[in-house]
Design a protein around this nucleic acid. Structure first.
Lengths: 231, 231
DNA sequence: CGGCGTATTTAGGTTAACCTAAATATTAGG
DNA sequence: CCTAATATTTAGGTTAACCTAAATACGCCG
């Protein structure tokens, strides 16, 4: 008779897989390939296959998975993924607003803590912050029931035409880029005028009311989402 | 050529062993037996032996260990253990003071989070709380350099004689006891008069200025530390 | 001082999450 | 429609932290 401790379905690793599937599936929640998961999670493709088989076999299943055809979140998986995203974004907001973290340090800390806070902790920081709807990067915070308003912003690199936009959000993936954007004064809510596209990898913009022209590299531009300013 | 990821010496498990050795070694930092570690950590004795061998073999060694003769913390091990205790107690204070946790819920949350917060997080909550010296249970918070004042309180069950005391601290190990003490109004700083010892397992005390007599069971009394009130 | 009970260690096994290398399935181009 | 490139899976191995059962050391008591 083997002791058989209940396998822990709430592990950090499982959370990260679910979060990655949510992210890569995009708003249409399309199938996600093992390969892109492997890249996202910096893990060997074989490890992904293994984990997906486990997630699909658990009860209740956390993903829907057919070999060679990619993976989808089940309703349970989606629920958990959104919970983790909610944790992440609440923690980021908390670190920024209450603990005065610099904007470029909140992501890393939240990435660790998101897996370990209790429901009570979540509820308390949510209350303390006045039930915020967006985090300091401009990303919306899923409601407790998982509801999340549809996103109508576009990535700056897709804003082909010259024109005026408002920054909706910035990606929190890369600390260096985040620091650059902070120094340039680019943050959610800031007005951004696209002036020119001097080269294939570069975008000329001006920020706020300033007439100074700033050259954004592909890397930076692709981490900014904007909404067209209808005037 | 095996990939050989650097073995992680900062794991949750290692932290817990170090913390347990610190606790069980007491103020004299005496040798700790595998068996008592096993009981404290709710783990099989064989697992303890294994871990101690690993901790002693790591570089720098975290413990000093000779088989059959118990274990001591090395200076590195003690440093880390105190760091974890500092984390734990700062987090408890933070949950209590800033997030309005009920006193009996802070321990469990701190027990999880203590392993995962960064130096920055530690520094920020410490600052936010005004560099507190004691946590909400009355336990002192080790300084950043590990310094911790010597404890001169005694356990209530050792306060043989009738007399007046001031509550120094309460143990946070058992949630139920903690709730009981809260309801009785027993908290650090409260005056406590020992009236009588009606039976081997029971202590009659009165609390604050009240003349009402309360009967504390062994369980509760042993979780209270007091200082004699010199008058 | 020798034996016995307890404490401790050794030996061998499990599980989760990763890995590499080899096998196989899918898809896209000629 | 077949093949080559790519994506995915299978097979087999590693590590950390646990486990049980069996062997061994310690220390106390008669």
């Amino acid at each position: 008779m083997t002791a058989r401790r209940e396998p822990n379905p709430n592990s950090e690793s499982v959370d990260n897989y679910l979060k990655a599937i949510l992210l890569l599936g995009g708003p249409e929640e399309s199938r996600v390939a093992s390969n892109s998961l492997a890249r996202q999670l910096r893990v060997a493709p074989a490890s992904v296959t293994n984990m997906l088989q486990k997630l699909a076999a658990s009860s209740p299943p956390l993903v829907v998975y057919e070999r060679h055809r990619g993976v989808l979140l089940s309703s349970m998986g989606k629920k958990r993924a959104l919970e983790v995203v909610r944790h992440h974004r609440l923690i980021e907001t908390f670190l920024y607003e209450v603990l005065d973290y610099p904007i470029d340090e909140v992501h890393e800390e939240a990435e660790r803590l998101e897996h370990f806070i209790s429901e009570r902790f979540e509820e308390r920081i949510d209350a303390k912050l006045g039930h915020p709807k967006i985090d300091p990067h401009g990303h919306c915070i899923p409601a407790m029931d998982g509801a999340m308003p549809r996103q109508n912003s576009i990535v700056l690199t897709d804003a082909m035409y010259e024109g005026t936009y408002v920054v909706d959000s910035v990606s929190d993936r890369d600390t260096r880029t985040l620091r650059l954007l902070k120094e340039s004064g680019i943050a959610p809510g800031v007005r951004l005028r696209v002036r020119d596209k001097p080269s294939i990898m570069s975008y000329a913009v001006s920020i706020g009311r300033s007439s100074r022209i700033l050259n954004l590299q592909e890397e930076a531009a692709s981490s900014i989402r904007v909404c067209a300013l209808r005037k």
